[in-house]
Design a protein around this nucleic acid. Structure first.
Length: 155
DNA sequence: GCCAACGTTGGC
DNA sequence: GCCAACGTTGGC
């Protein structure tokens, strides 16, 4: 099956690409997704071997900062069951965990951020999910064309 | 810190 | 099942 491409948003103050690189094997689980659309994407469409951009949001210069590889398919997000976790969901249970996550491994950090303003200026990306008005999904699909084009912007 | 856009909740 | 109220996201 062909490799699919994704974009993972994260607030760098909470979890940046450097934080991911600092983990053993530069790998961590992408927990805390509490949006059904994003969950369904992870659960139903993401698979091991897929690739993704790491995107920094809600910060001084939002944009794509590097690349990750998906190293596991989706499994239960245990943080939903942990009352001490900020991602605790009282409606989740062991029988119905509700939420899931995948494991991602950082593979590349771009020397310079590819800023959102730069992406917006590219006609080639005019239909990209990330740039659609009002889009707030924290995990979203990227087409092969967009993947190739954006990678070329990295130095 | 503001605000537009969107998702979720809960009363009816 | 509708919809108003509320909470969250995220760029600016």
């Amino acid at each position: 099956m062909a490799v699919n491409y994704w974009l993972f948003k994260s607030e760098p103050d909470a979890f940046s690409i450097d934080d991911l690189f600092a983990m053993p094997d530069a790998t961590d689980h992408w927990d805390g997704i509490r949006n059904y659309q994003a969950r369904n994407i992870m659960r139903d469409e993401m698979k091991k071997g897929d690739k993704g951009f790491f995107y920094h949001s809600s910060c001084k210069v939002p944009g794509v900062v590097g690349e990750v590889k998906i190293v596991s398919s989706a499994y239960d997000d245990h943080t939903a069951l942990d009352p001490a976790s900020p991602y605790f969901d009282p409606k989740a249970s062991a029988e119905n965990p509700r939420w899931c996550m995948v494991d991602v491994q950082a593979t590349k950090r771009y020397p310079d951020i590819i800023a959102l303003t730069v992406l917006k200026a590219c006609d080639e990306l005019s239909s990209m999910s990330l740039l659609k008005r009002g889009n707030r999904l924290s995990v979203m699909p990227v087409t092969a064309e967009e993947w190739t084009f954006i990678r070329k912007l990295a130095r």
